[in-house]
Design a protein around this nucleic acid. Structure first.
Lengths: 337, 337
DNA sequence: ATCGTTCTTAAGAACGTTTTCAACGACGAA
DNA sequence: TTCGTCGTTGAAAACGTTCTTAAGAACGAT
C-alpha cells in the first residue's frame, strides 16, 4: 500500500533511475517510452507518491480552487446554492472553498484581497449589501469574479440575477385571484440588495393590480432570519389585519406562519402566506409554504458555469443573466377563502 | 489605491531599494530599522503587494486551510457544524474548505489522498459509514484528522462523539413519564454509524424502562432525508399504532409530523414525536419539535479545537471526547395525553 | 589600536513542481 | 558514409516565498 512518508518527484526519479523531468512527463503529459512509463509508474506506486499542490500551483499559477462567499451558512437558500455549486465545480475538477463572510461588505473586501493572494482561481460572490468600496475592490481584483445577485448597471462583471419584481408579481397575482386585497409585506433590511428589490417589486405589483397599501401593511425585519421574522410579523399583526402576507424569504415566511398560528389565525383561511426562494424549508413547513422560486439553484449553477468559463477564457465578453422566477403553490395559499 | 498588477517581493524590494530578505523580514518578523520599515511599507503599499499563498505554503509547509468533509450539505446538522467550525477555525487564522463527499466511503478515501497533496493542514471528518479501507486510509494519512462521530475502539485518532444511547434514554424517559408505552423508532440506514447507534440506544432504552417493542414498531428509512422519512413513517403507521415516535434525525421527525398530520393524527395528543440533533428545523417545525440535543454544535467546536491543537502539536496524546446529550422539550411532546 | 559583540542587512539556498532547451541516439534518405 | 530528422531523455531554470548563513558596520572593552 501507499507509504505514509512524504515523497516527491526526486525520490520517485531516484527509485526509477530516471530524471525528475521524465517522471513529471510520464505522470502528466505524454511523450515517454513504454519502459520509462512502466518504471516510473511502479516507483510512484511503491512510494505512494502524490504531487504537491502548492508547488504545482506556484509553477502553473492554477490552484484548482473556487471560492464561494456566502453571507450566512444557515440560510437555506445558500445551502441550496452550495449544493449546486459544489456539484458543478467538482465536475470541472475544482475544489470549493466556502467562506462565510458576514453581511458586512468589509468582510467581503478582505476576502477579495486575500483572493489575490492566490488561494483560488475565481470567486462566486453573493453580496447582501453593495457599497462603492466593494465595487472598487471587485473591479481591482486580478481574479475572475461572478456575482450572484443584482449589480448596478455600470459594473462590467459577469453576473446572474433574480427577477424579484416579476416573482412578486406572480405571488400577488395568485393572491389577487383569490380575492385577497390587503396584501402585506414582511421584508428584510431594505439597505440590502434583495431587501430593496423585494420592496420595489411589492410596490410595483400592488400598483399594477390596483391594490392599496400603507405603511401599516409593510414591516421590515432586522435580518433575513427566523427570529427577526417572528418579531416583524408580530409587529405587523399588531398594526393591521392583512388577508395575505408576502415574505422576502422562506425563513421569514415560516416565522410568519408560526406567529399567525400563535395569534390564532388560520392559514390559508384567514391569511395566506407566500415565501420566497422555494427552499427545502417551504416544503417542510406546516402548512407547506407557497413560495416564489427565484431560481437560486439555477442561478448558482449558471454562475458556477460562468466562472469556470471566465477562468478558462479571461477575455470572454461579460455576461449578465436573468433567471426567470416561477411560483410553487402549496398549502399556505391553496384553499382560498 | 492598490494596483491591480501582480506584484512580488522582488518588485517591492527593488522599489524600496533594499533586499528581498529585508522586505520579508519587515512584513513578517521583526528585526528591522525604522528607516527600513518605513520604506518597505511604503513600497508595498504603493505596489499593492499581497504575498503569494502557494509560494509561502511551499516554503513553510503550512496552508492555513482546514478541510471539513460532510456527507450532505443539506442536512441541518451539518449546517450547524459548518457554522460553528467556520467561526472557530476562522478565529485561529484558518480558512475552511468544505468538501461534500457523498455517503460513500470511497469518496472520503479520495479526499484523504488528495489531502496528502497538501491543500489543507488538517481534516475534520464526519463519516456516515466506516469501512476497513477508510480506517486504513485515515491511519495512513500524513495529516492530522479529527473524526466527528464514533470510531471503533482500537483506532487511535482524535475524535469527538455523541452519546446516542443516553440521548435516546432521555427521550424515552420523557415519553414514559407521560405514560406512552408504544414507542416506535424511525431510524436511518442501520449500516451507518449513527443509524446503528440509534438502534442500539433505542433497544437499550426500551429494555431499561420495561417496555416492549417489535419489528412493527421499528422502521428504517433509506436515508436521513425528509422524503425517506415520509415513506418510512407511512410504512410505520400502516403496520402499527404507536403513541410516540422517536426519530433518528430532525429531518426524519419533521417528515413524521407531516405524515401524521396527513393521516389525521394529532400531535402530541395522539402521538408524541421526538427528533434528534436539535437543529433549527426543530424550532421551525409545526408543532415545534422536542429534540434530543446530541451536542452537534459542541462537538463541532470541540473537534475544531482538537484539530487546531493537533496541527500545532502533532505528538499530543490522542483525545476522545464524549459530549453529553440533553433534551429540548417543545410542543411535539408537551401536552401529554 | 585591536579584538570581540551586537545589530542590521544582503546573498543565496531551499521548498517541489512544470517546462524549455539542448543533447543524444537511432534511423531513413541521399 | 554522411546528413538531417525525429523521438526520447536529462539538465536546469523558473515560480515567490522563508530562513540560514555570513558579511559589514558600529561600538565598547581590553
Amino acid at each position: 500500500m501507499a507509504e505514509t512518508k512524504k515523497s516527491n518527484l526526486a525520490l520517485v526519479a531516484a527509485r526509477a533511475g530516471v530524471s525528475v523531468a521524465s517522471v513529471s512527463r510520464v505522470l502528466n503529459g505524454g511523450g515517454a517510452s513504454e519502459e520509462m512509463t512502466r518504471r516510473v509508474r511502479e516507483a510512484a506506486e511503491a512510494l505512494g507518491y502524490v504531487p504537491d499542490t502548492s508547488a504545482r500551483t506556484l509553477r502553473t499559477g492554477r490552484t484548482d480552487q473556487i471560492a464561494l462567499a456566502v453571507a450566512d451558512v444557515g440560510n437555506p437558500v445558500y445551502v441550496q446554492m452550495m449544493r449546486t455549486v459544489t456539484s458543478i465545480v467538482g465536475k470541472a475538477g475544482y475544489r470549493l472553498v466556502v467562506s462565510s463572510t458576514g453581511s458586512d461588505p468589509a468582510d467581503q473586501i478582505d476576502l477579495l484581497s486575500s483572493l489575490n493572494r492566490g488561494y483560488a482561481d475565481g470567486l462566486l460572490l453573493s453580496p447582501l449589501r453593495i457599497t462603492a468600496d466593494l465595487i472598487a475592490a471587485m473591479r481591482g481584483s486580478r481574479l475572475p469574479i461572478v456575482v450572484i445577485g443584482t449589480l448596478p448597471a455600470d459594473v462590467e462583471l459577469d453576473n446572474v440575477r433574480a427577477d424579484s419584481a416579476t416573482g412578486i408579481g406572480l405571488a400577488v397575482e395568485h393572491l389577487v385571484a383569490q380575492d385577497r386585497r390587503r396584501i402585506a409585506l414582511v421584508n428584510g433590511p431594505v439597505d440590502t440588495v434583495p431587501g430593496a428589490a423585494r420592496l420595489a417589486g411589492y410596490l410595483a405589483a400592488v400598483e399594477r393590480f390596483g391594490l392599496t397599501t400603507s405603511s401599516e401593511l409593510q414591516v421590515t425585519a432586522t435580518g433575513f432570519t427566523y427570529r427577526a421574522g417572528r418579531r416583524a410579523t408580530a409587529q405587523l399583526l399588531g398594526q393591521s389585519s392583512p388577508d395575505a402576507i408576502v415574505c422576502a424569504n422562506d425563513l421569514l415566511a415560516v416565522a410568519a406562519l408560526k406567529e399567525l398560528a400563535a395569534a390564532g389565525a388560520r392559514v390559508p383561511a384567514d391569511v395566506a402566506v407566500v415565501g420566497m426562494d422555494d427552499t427545502d424549508a417551504a416544503e417542510l413547513a406546516t402548512p407547506s409554504l407557497t413560495s416564489v422560486d427565484l431560481g437560486s439553484a439555477k442561478r448558482a449553477k449558471a454562475a458556477a458555469k460562468l466562472l469556470i468559463r471566465r477562468i478558462q477564457d479571461p477575455d470572454a465578453p461579460v455576461q449578465r443573466l436573468v433567471i426567470a422566477p416561477s411560483l410553487s403553490v402549496r398549502e399556505s395559499t391553496q384553499e382560498a377563502a
